[in-house]
């Protein structure tokens, strides 16, 4: 019985904490241990002599993506100011504004998924969220198309609600 108890880690820990009480043993690191992002399993891939992997070039990534992003952002400036100047937007301009907003939003959400759900940490969550985002973007695009064709359009609707 005694030998069995000595083998149990829990019993051993309780003995340690009991003997520790007069002089508290502090951890070496004073900062609180917050396991927001616990470290991943420590593994080493390859050797020190492996060349750094050069990512494949892609027509919609890197600098092209950056430029595309800025063109949409810059385009949103006059599209946002126009309704304030003109009071509202005609259906074509409203559709352009909606398209730009969807693209801008989609890119923004993508950036958030990329930033907060790293590939090497949560690959499945990231892939799932990317598909969820695509689904939501599609639903938003179709929903806004319906709103533009069956209702009065986003700017006019906002104006009517605002003046209500």
């Amino acid at each position: 019985m005694a030998s069995l108890a000595r083998q149990t880690p829990l019993f051993r820990r309780s003995c340690l904490s009991a003997s520790r009480s007069p002089m508290q043993v502090m951890a070496f690191h004073a900062s609180a241990k917050k396991q927001i992002l616990p470290p991943l399993p420590q593994v080493i891939h390859g050797t020190t002599n492996d060349a750094v992997e050069v990512p494949k070039t892609h027509a919609t990534e890197g600098s092209y993506h950056w430029t595309f992003e800025r063109i949409i952002s810059a385009g949103l400036v006059p599209l946002t100011l126009a309704p304030f100047a003109a009071g509202s937007l005609n259906p074509t301009m409203d559709a352009i504004l909606c398209s730009a907003l969807i693209l801008h939003s989609h890119i923004g959400f993508q950036a958030m998924v990329i930033d907060y759900f790293p590939q090497r940490r949560v690959p499945k969550t990231r892939a799932g969220l990317m598909w969820l985002l695509r689904g939501f973007t599609l639903a938003t695009a179709v929903g806004l198309y319906e709103f533009e064709t069956n209702d009065v359009g986003i700017t006019e609707a906002l104006k009517r609600i605002w003046k209500a």
Partner: peptide, 18 residues
């Protein structure tokens, strides 16, 4: 703020669709 604005747009448009 970007998340809130775009999130509102997405929620409204998707809700309008369904």
């Amino acid at each position: 703020t970007g998340f809130a604005l775009s999130g509102s747009l997405y929620l409204f448009a998707s809700a309008y669709l369904v």
